[in-house]
């Protein structure tokens, strides 16, 4: 079973075991992880589920779509090359661990 590791801005670290295909935003919401708001619930309209991918995780996911790119320009904290919207990230098969860092703010 793969694990998603959420690194919070305050230094806290939370590991959650998930099934393949699990959504990184939804997993965080269901586990009540602070730091992901996801106001629009995954419709790619709000840019409040912003995460930074840790280096070993960057190549794991599908490329950024035009819609996600548009939303990434609206994130509240700094946009970095490793910025993604967690609602667009599903854990692929064959990966043990996904590590995402949460920004200081989402709004």
């Amino acid at each position: 079973m793969p694990t998603i590791t959420y690194l919070l801005a305050d230094g806290t670290k939370t590991d959650i075991k998930v099934d393949v295909g699990a959504n990184v935003m939804r997993t965080a919401i269901d586990a009540d992880i602070p730091g992901i708001v996801a106001e629009c619930g995954g419709a790619a309209m709000c840019a409040t589920c912003h995460v930074y991918l840790e280096p070993e995780t960057e190549s794991v996911f599908t490329a950024i779509s035009d819609v996600e790119e548009e939303m990434l320009e609206c994130v509240a904290d700094d946009r970095q090359p490793e910025s993604r919207l967690s609602c667009q990230l599903n854990v692929p098969a064959g990966v043990d661990r996904i590590t995402v860092r949460l920004p200081k703010t989402q709004s």
């Binding site: 919401i29 708001v37 996801a38 106001e39 629009c40 619930g41 995954g42 419709a43 309209m45 709000c46």
Partner: peptide, 21 residues
């Protein structure tokens, strides 16, 4: 109350939901 589906969910989730909010 986030996670409510008042604006629907998924790819057809209301496109105007942010201006409505």
């Amino acid at each position: 109350a986030t996670g409510n589906m008042g604006f629907g969910a998924g790819i057809h989730g209301c496109a105007g939901q942010m201006i409505a909010r």
